[in-house]
């Protein structure tokens, strides 16, 4: 086993602080435990690779989201090209949505399970937007992660929440 270096310590500290954020992103985007594990590993690897670019520690939170969501996009593209994320028969659903198994046990509270199921039926961009919103990021921080202006975050969030509301009613009935 190798001794810990400064970069090891920086990486481990960053992961320790942001582990739950990363895991929530994995649960929002990956439908099966196997995919979630793969995605988690992939995000950690990208954080490891990108860590030398992180100069301002105060931006670490939004930086981790940016890396995580970038990794998600590549991950979905790769899995999609192998036909693993959206079965062809369900492609009329919102683009890049996934089909969670309703019986899949994940959270004890049925409301949080419904929330994850509803979010999973939104498109990639809306899922990211809602995750960041639920994580209590400011409009400016969300805008920075998403690459849109802060003014548009409110507009898009309004649409996404309206969709989520409809999805939640669908999954609970």
């Amino acid at each position: 086993m190798n001794p810990q270096t400064n970069s090891d310590r920086g990486f481990l500290k960053l992961i320790e602080t942001n582990r739950q954020r990363i895991l929530k992103v994995c649960h929002v985007y990956a439908a099966t435990p196997h995919d979630r594990d793969d995605l988690y590993q992939e995000i950690l690897l990208q954080i490891w690779r990108g860590l030398p670019n992180l100069r301002e520690q105060s931006y670490a939170g939004t930086w981790v989201y940016r890396v995580a969501l970038n990794t998600v996009i590549s991950f979905l593209r790769r899995n999609k090209s192998h036909g693993q994320i959206v079965p062809a028969a369900n492609s009329q659903l919102i683009e890049w949505s996934d089909q969670r198994q309703p019986a899949e046990p994940r959270r004890d509270d049925p409301r949080i399970e419904s929330l994850y199921q509803a979010i999973a039926r939104l498109n990639v961009y809306e899922r990211a937007l809602l995750t960041l919103y639920l994580e209590d990021l400011s409009y400016e921080q969300i805008a920075e992660v998403m690459g849109i202006s802060a003014n548009h975050v409110g507009v898009m969030l309004h649409r996404a929440k309206a969709k989520l509301s409809g999805m939640m009613q669908e999954v609970t009935t």
């Binding site: 990208q46 954080i47 690779r49 990108g50 670019n53 992180l54 930086w63 940016r66 890396v67 969501l69 970038n70 990794t71 996009i73 590549s74 593209r77 990639v124 961009y125 990211a128 920075e144 992660v145 998403m146 690459g147 849109i148």
Partner: peptide
């Protein structure tokens, strides 16, 4: 870069595809 914005990431994926 692994820390670009989500929109840049989507554009990069489209360019890649």
């Amino acid at each position: 870069s692994p820390d670009r914005s989500l929109r840049d990431s989507l554009q990069a994926e489209i360019a890649k595809v």
